[in-house]
């Protein structure tokens, strides 16, 4: 059983280094956002907090759809305006799905939603180089009940600001 011993040891070491670093929920998005430096006060129209809360960092989707609603387009218009004023930020667009679907399909659906947002922001003048996408499928729900009131919040695409754009 040599291999078992080796395996256990390896996992133990990895487990140690993983301690303390497992917070998925930094900022509005799941990935490494720009929540730290430059976040600023929500009153500052160039702050990340202003983008997340006042402009709105997310758009919601209908069940099994990736079509942007009128409300979503209005939010993305405001996001595009903000991004054109704040060139120091790039964005990562996270696509998500609710739990009513199989895992693989929801990954693909989340990617479709993220791509819909990306395409719209590009149409509003944000350059390709500032935009990237990721799908979390149904793996990272924001609201955890199993009812439509939660599902509608989870069918989302979140625009996560990342420091490092052209102006930085």
């Amino acid at each position: 059983m040599k291999h078992l011993a080796k395996l256990t040891l390896l996992v133990a070491v990895l487990g140690l280094s993983a301690c303390g670093g497992n917070n998925f929920l930094g900022g509005g998005g799941m990935g490494a956002g720009a929540g730290g430096a430059g976040a600023g006060a929500a009153g500052d129209p160039n702050s990340v907090a202003y983008f997340n809360e006042t402009v709105g960092d997310r758009v919601l989707f209908e069940v099994d759809q990736s079509t942007l609603t009128d409300q979503a387009r209005a939010t993305l218009d405001d996001q595009a305006d903000w991004l054109l004023r704040n060139m120091e930020y790039n964005v990562l667009i996270e696509g998500h799905a609710d739990e009513q679907g199989t895992r693989d399909y929801n990954l693909a659906l989340g990617a479709r939603r993220a791509a819909a947002v990306e395409a719209y922001l590009m149409s509003r003048g944000i350059t390709d180089a500032r935009l990237s996408t990721i799908s979390y499928g149904k793996e990272r729900p924001l609201a955890i009940c199993s009812e439509e009131s939660c599902y509608r919040q989870n069918r989302r695409a979140v625009t996560v600001l990342q420091a490092g754009g052209a102006g930085a």
Binding site: L4, L7, T8, V11, L14, G15, S17, A18, G21, N22, N23, F24, L25, E139, R140, P141, L142, A143, I144
Partner: peptide
């Protein structure tokens, strides 16, 4: 549910001898 940690694991078909193959990062 909103902050699940995932690790790859392997076990016998009956649930015995569970071993983890990745950490949860």
């Amino acid at each position: 549910k909103n902050a699940r940690l995932h690790r790859l694991a392997i076990m016998d078909y009956d649930g015995a001898n569970v071993q983890f193959l990745t950490d949860s990062r």
